[in-house]
């Protein structure tokens, strides 16, 4: 059976670290970085990229349009 795999790209400098994407992610893919971006925010990043299904929930709730989402069947 084909498995759906996803991948996200986070525009680090636009991210404000609000964590809304993290709590919306059903697979626990996203975590907040320990490092900060240029504005001093702990930005979101795919901490567990292998868990991503490309559902785009994170992108849908992101107030700053930070996340781009890709999806494929493997």
């Amino acid at each position: 059976m084909a498995k759906i795999r996803g991948s996200i790209v986070v525009n680090v400098e636009r991210c404000k670290g609000c964590e809304v994407c993290m709590v919306s992610c059903p697979t626990g893919t996203i975590a907040m970085a320990k490092e900060v971006n240029g504005k001093g925010y702990n930005y979101a990043f795919p901490a567990n990229p292998e868990l991503c299904t490309g559902c785009a929930n994170c992108a849908m709730v992101c107030p700053d349009g930070v996340i781009t989402v890709y999806k494929t069947k493997i």
Partner: peptide, 20 residues
Amino acid sequence: MVEFSGIKEIIKPENLVYKK
């Protein structure tokens, strides 16, 4: 642009599902 991405092989135009 500084980006942080997941699995690189999936990131192809034909796999795009959401973009600002």
